[in-house]
Design a protein around this nucleic acid. Structure first.
Lengths: 178, 178
DNA sequence: CCCTGATAGTCCATTGATGAACTATCAGTC
DNA sequence: GACTGATAGTTCATCAATGGACTATCAGGG
């Protein structure tokens, strides 16, 4: 996808100017709200694409990694594909493909469930655990650097705000269904 | 692409619990930072996918729409593809395809530039402008609803925080290049 | 002028994601 | 205990995105 040429701050400034010009032509457009959502999307995108870049040398992408982490964080190191779908926000189709790849690399095993014969049990292997334990320490220093300028209170405020936003998004979607 | 089954708040709760469990096994993992970034990505993703859903009936996706908006917001309604790439955060390859689609639908024209014969000038058509003017008023009410519970001060704080985060991300990436 | 390096846009081959259809199993009902 | 509806997982065909290679043009030195 690309276009990491210009710094984020420049692109945001351009975005703000653009929204302002739209506002000038259509005054009902809520400038701040549009900018907030766009910046949010941009940050999220930029973050996951950075993660992808760092994961690629190890043969994983963001979805693979999150799936692996879901298993790693699971109390007993196992889960059903459909559970992982929810956790990783992926379609079942996609989860099949991700699992194929993880199994092929020996990071995960896939065995039929005995209680419910429709189901499959996915379990992280020792090799998978080792990879997680090797990768994680290379990833979180970036996060720490990212938030270095933020006080505990700043982070708390941000988290609260984002959770409020998530609840609001749920409410809007729920209303749409009706 | 899927998995909008569970509400966002539930998925976030599951995420927090998961990160906590990882933290229990690897105490160096910064829980709050990881959660913040994941929630940010999740919100951004959820927002654009919601936008995509609303745009689909009109035959557009998010990238198409943003390209069209970039032209709409451009002072003279025109721009070069490579400029649009930066604005929309897309690769040049992709922009060619997006342009093809927009031109095919008569929303945009594409003519060679006379000053620089390598370049192409893209211009929004009357039909394109009409579409924007029809679509926008259907989109921003959602944004307004989303932020209904936020005071002006809340929004200001959030914007400031996100901009700080963007600057920090730039700094991290810049450091990585060196 | 002519070269070199850079930029603009496109094309093509490959990989990745998506949605519809399908099989198998389960849970509840009459 | 057969039937209906729901759930789990996979397969396949299609569409979208990616990266690399290619052509054309420009800008700056020699």
């Amino acid at each position: 996808m690309a276009a990491r040429e210009r710094p984020l701050t420049d692109r945001i400034a351009a975005l703000q100017a653009g929204v302002q010009r739209v506002h000038a032509r259509m005054p009902a457009v809520p400038v701040r709200e549009v900018v907030l959502m766009r910046v949010l999307s941009l940050l999220g995108w930029e973050f996951t694409s950075g993660l992808d870049r760092r994961l690629r040398p190890h043969g994983l992408n963001d979805a693979d990694f999150r799936t692996l982490m879901a298993l790693f964080s699971s109390p007993d190191g196992m889960a059903h594909p459909s559970e992982l779908c929810h956790f990783v926000t992926q379609s079942r189709t996609n989860m099949t493909r991700i699992s194929d790849a993880l199994v092929a690399r020996g990071l995960v095993t896939r065995t039929p469930s005995v209680e419910d014969r429709r189901r499959i049990v996915m379990r992280i292997t020792a090799k998978g655990e080792a990879l997680v334990r090797k990768l994680l320490p290379r990833l979180y220093p970036i996060l720490i650097a990212l938030f270095a300028g933020f006080s505990a209170r700043d982070k708390q405020t941000l988290e609260t705000t984002l959770l409020r936003l998530a609840a609001a998004l749920d409410a809007v979607e729920a209303r749409k269904e009706a």
